[in-house]
């Protein structure tokens, strides 16, 4: 009897438009299975025929996000019923098997504001799997693009400049190049120091996802908001998020000896007074990755300002220069004492 009443109440609410009927979660079997579904709709992440996520997923943002050609991103977490993600001692979030992280990329004015691509990280029994999907022209569903693809995208950057770029949707291996820790795929974005739940913290079902809110007592600042942290802290946050996933001792750039995580010490391994190792043309004829007080002779800056694949850093996911991010790092290097190694 109570069940019927609840259903009726829900129907009434829906009819009134005030509150949506609680929807089912995503398709757990698709997440858990070992297949690579051809269509994104098989996961039940989005309402049928749309790119609007179902309410069951938990949205989040990051204090400092990865730059991806000025794309706007929507991030979602799914944790299977009856399980919870936990916070590890080092600030990483451990997601249980059956979890899924969803990230969609789009630009205002492109695809009518709908996403261009959606990437999934699925935590399966044998580890994380990364799958890239490109949205179909009609915006109703997206199709697996396991080998990646270049998609023409046009957008206006914050400085007003128009860009038309061959935006690179990464292939499955390229997903792993960044999402790699000692050769295994791992999530990068959701970590206590950087995750931001905003209003989602108030969700009635927040505790279903996390045993405790995975929030750091000393979070990273917002890279472009001086009120959120010092220049040094904002620059370090930017380097961590944009570079640190490869530039760490277990990442894809481990051989460089250049380690750029939030927690890495400030010294040669952070690039200060560090000579090029395997930079090739990336050195731009300069002696040091970071030359204190001299951003024009710091090849870390040179590589961020380049679009040439033999020079540009990061190696993936960037077809435009992030002017504002580079400006932050230039400012940081400029204020370093010149003799201070």
């Amino acid at each position: 009897m109570r069940r019927i009443a609840a259903a009726l109440a829900a129907a009434l609410l829906c009819a009134s438009g005030a509150v949506a009927v609680p929807e089912a979660g995503p398709n757990q079997a698709a997440i858990d299975g070992d297949a690579m579904p051809r269509k994104l709709s098989e996961f039940g992440i989005f309402r049928a025929g749309t790119s609007e996520p179902v309410d069951a997923l938990l949205g989040y943002t990051l204090h400092t996000p990865l730059f991806s050609d000025y794309a706007q991103k929507q991030r979602l977490i799914w944790v299977p019923p009856g399980k919870q993600a936990t916070l590890s001692d080092d600030g990483h979030i451990d997601f249980p098997v059956g979890s899924m992280i969803v990230k969609s990329f789009g630009w205002p004015g492109q695809n009518g504001g709908r996403p261009v691509e959606t990437r999934l990280l699925l935590h399966r029994a044998d580890g994380w799997t990364a799958l890239p999907y490109i949205w179909d022209a009609d915006g109703k569903d997206a199709t697996l693009a396991i080998a990646g693809r270049r998609v023409p995208v046009t957008f206006k950057a914050p400085d007003g400049a128009m860009h038309s770029i061959p935006y690179a949707v990464p292939n499955k291996n390229q997903c792993k190049e960044c999402h790699s820790k000692a050769g295994e795929i791992v999530p990068i974005g959701p970590k206590a120091a950087n995750i931001n739940f905003e209003n989602a913290l108030d969700r009635h079902d927040f505790a279903r996802f996390f045993a405790e809110p995975p929030i750091s007592a000393d979070p990273m600042p917002q890279w472009d908001d001086p009120a959120s942290g010092t220049l040094e802290r904002r620059a370090r946050a930017y380097l961590d998020v944009n570079c640190g996933h490869c530039h760490n001792p277990q990442g894809s750039a481990s051989n460089s000896g250049l380690f750029l995580r939030w927690t890495d010490p400030k010294g040669v391994s952070l690039g200060i007074g560090k000579r090029p190792t395997a930079a090739g043309r990336g050195s731009g004829g300069m002696e040091f990755a970071i030359k204190p007080g001299d951003p024009d002779h710091s090849f870390l800056i040179y590589r961020l300002e380049s679009l040439d694949p033999g020079i540009a850093m990061p190696e993936l996911g960037r077809s435009t220069v992030h002017r504002e991010g580079v400006a932050l790092l230039r400012q940081w290097i400029a204020q370093m004492p010149k003799d201070g190694h």
Binding site: R150, Q174, S252, P309, S319
Partner: peptide
């Protein structure tokens, strides 16, 4: 005509 990636072929 390469547009992206730091190398032609990467083996991991």
């Amino acid at each position: 005509g390469q547009q992206g990636a730091g190398e032609g072929l990467l083996v991991t």
